[in-house]
Design a binder for these strands. Structure first.
Lengths: 194, 194
DNA sequence: TCTATAATTGACTAATTAGTCAATTTTTTT
DNA sequence: AAAAAAATTGACTAATTAGTCAATTATAGA
């Protein structure tokens, strides 16, 4: 028990330190020595949990993506109507990015780095199955336009990232909800029939 | 004359080599020695043209962004109607990304790296003045919805990047024009009144 | 041609890198 | 409490890094 806990703590400490430094200084701009120091462990300990630096980066990505995915899905019951569910997905995504700036930037960095493989990209896509389902449902009921789901999801996802960046850059907290709503109107008008 | 030409050739060779290697292996994953070798010059020559590696990265970014900007604006005469001009801007952006994959990936990498400053971000935004103008014009004539121009431009820009990624990933050349057109329908429906 | 200026070279350096491993400490089991 | 197993340490290494600089080569104008 106690042992389990401590292991988790060190692992977590390393991942948190890595997340912080990666977003501050980039992947290669951050050395394993710096990460260890920030986490308060010896360099050897880092390599005990993550055989290589690349392994650490990838583990971190899966972890963070999992959190985003779970966060997106919260509060989406089958009872609400299509528009409300899509809107909830939209605001959940954006709020997660705004509230988890480091994670948001890290994901952006990793996804546009040459280290992400097609496999990883595909693997992570699986986590968006509920968005996929929602879009397909909308198409079936005739509420969504019949674009390809891939296009719809890509526009939705990148659109939400655009809004997060806008909010983070403008640092006017009051704008947040307005930008989320306006952004949703664009997506909604774009993707649905009326 | 001859001297001018040769200077340009070495500079260009270095930038081209850097672009290739950066997209293949990332900024820090690429050493100045590797760039020099790929460009066919001595390491000293690289530092003759670019005082630091960071300077090289930034110069490359401005250069590439300039090319994109120029490419976006081609063929947009004042004679055509609003929708046609916006559509042209849309397809120009996407086609540039598809035809210049390295540049496209490099821009994505740089923009989500921690090395891009707010200054650079703003500076580059100036190059999108014509998109800004077009959007404002649309709002004035009542064709565009009255969202903030920043939001509109961000959604437009990130949307176009989403489509490029989709096309590059799917590597089905036939899908290209269909995806561009479908993507435009989303943007158009989202941003305009009817 | 001769001279001055600018461009190019690559061996070099001091610092940093990811990753190792034998020794030590902590935890679990008996 | 003693033994076994697992976790942690940090000094260490071989390789690589960005950037320098004195020597060399190419170019320009007279």
């Amino acid at each position: 028990m106690k042992y389990e806990k401590q292991v988790k703590d060190k692992r977590t400490a390393i991942m948190e330190a890595a997340l912080k430094l990666f977003t501050e200084r980039g992947f290669h701009g951050t050395s394993t020595a710096q990460i260890s120091k920030e986490a308060g462990v010896a360099t050897g300990t880092l390599f005990n949990y993550f055989p290589t630096k690349e392994d650490l980066i990838n583990s971190l990505y899966f972890e963070v993506k999992g959190r985003l995915s779970r966060s997106m899905g919260t509060g989406i019951g089958i009872e609400s109507i299509f528009q409300e569910r899509l809107r909830r997905l939209w605001s959940n995504s954006i709020n997660w990015g705004v509230d988890n700036q480091e994670e948001f930037l890290f994901v952006g960095q990793f996804c546009s780095s040459p280290y992400i493989t097609k496999y990883t990209r595909k693997e992570v896509m699986k986590e968006y199955i509920f968005l996929h389902n929602l879009v397909n449902e909308g198409i079936k009921t005739g509420e969504s336009k019949d674009f390809s789901p891939e296009l719809t999801i890509a526009m939705f996802y990148q659109g939400s990232r655009a809004v997060v960046s806008l909010i983070l850059d403008s640092n006017v907290a009051l704008d947040k909800d307005r930008l989320i709503e306006k952004g949703f109107q664009i997506i909604w008008n774009g993707l649905t029939n009326k």
